[in-house]
């Protein structure tokens, strides 16, 4: 019984890491620019389709598709941000919601047109398949890999924001964009680059998550609610908060699926509402 519990716990953590990878960009862009980007899941989906297309059509190995997915989605997102999103920064949240949901619908329909509505396959390399014994616990190697990637990215993001010059510019632009501009920081450029990195990470998460989350054109709508839960419960713009919330959401979701399937998603929604009542700005969010 304990072994099952620990296995489910670990699976939940791996699942949470995927949620973290995809949600962190959403959290940062919403926290920084105050832009409600509900099309974020579409970026993750594009990452997934880039990976599966490369693997199936060109025989590119799985691990090589990951950085490509990151780079292509990041590039595409810069184009979208400069062409479209930056026109809407001064608009209200409702316009932003409508606009980004519209983009999501278009991408869902477009992907269905090209790839059909069915689930995309993924072939993991042999060394990522199977189980390995870790402290007497049998865990899937791929899930271990996911946890490692998630923690690495979290560490890189935290270090990048806290310790680099670019990170300092981001923090300055978030705290006071007018003052940051006055100090000679190109706030628009900082936002664009941050947005691209966040979207790239979503693309990476989408590519890594093909096996566990599944990849169909409905992906952005199916998981949107979970990403939003992670962002709001974690606290806008908080890297640590997003990591914590993603792990909590991942573990609770996995636990309820295993042990209480008849209650379904009930618990996760109830927990979210309760947490937001307790801390409206999220677990680690700043009061604005």
């Amino acid at each position: 019984m304990l072994a099952i519990l620990l296995t489910v716990l670990f699976d939940g953590l791996a699942y949470g890491m995927l949620l973290f990878l995809i949600s962190i960009g959403l959290s940062v862009t919403m926290g920084m620019m105050g832009f409600v980007n509900l099309a974020h899941g579409a970026f993750a989906m594009f990452g997934g389709y880039v990976a599966t297309t490369l693997m199936q059509r060109a025989g590119v190995p799985f691990l090589v598709t990951l950085p490509v997915a990151f780079a292509l989605v990041a590039l595409a997102s810069i184009v979208v941000e400069r062409l479209l999103y930056q026109r809407l920064y001064r608009r209200g949240p409702l316009d932003q919601v409508l606009f980004t949901v519209g983009l999501t619908f278009m991408s869902v329909a477009g992907i269905t047109w090209f790839y059909g509505p069915s689930q995309q396959p993924v072939v993991l390399p042999a060394f990522l398949q199977g189980q390995v014994s870790l402290f007497g616990l049998e865990v899937g190697i791929f899930r271990l890999f996911l946890v490692a990637v998630g923690l690495l990215v979290a560490a890189a993001v935290v270090l990048g924001v806290e310790r680099t010059r670019f990170g300092a510019k981001i923090r300055a632009a978030v705290d006071n964009p007018v003052m940051a501009t006055g100090l000679g920081i190109n706030v628009g450029g900082v936002f664009a680059l941050t947005f691209a990195i966040g979207s790239g990470l979503a693309g990476l998460g989408g590519a890594l998550g093909i096996q566990i989350l599944g990849l169909t054109p409905a992906f952005p709508l199916k998981y949107l609610v979970l990403f939003l839960i992670v962002v709001s419960v974690g606290g806008l713009g908080s890297v640590g908060g997003a990591l914590l919330a993603a792990c909590v959401v991942g573990v609770i979701d996995m636990m309820t699926k295993y042990f209480l399937p008849e209650i379904g998603s009930f618990i996760i929604y109830a927990v979210m509402v309760a947490l937001l009542m307790w801390r409206p700005h999220g677990l680690l969010g700043k009061k604005s």
């Binding site: 809407l88 409508l98 606009f99 519209g102 619908f105 329909a109």
Partner: peptide, 15 residues
């Protein structure tokens, strides 16, 4: 799919 693409496009254009 036409409907979904169309409604998405209209939303984008309206905003």
């Amino acid at each position: 799919q036409y409907w979904q693409f169309g409604v998405g496009g209209v939303m984008v254009l309206v905003v």
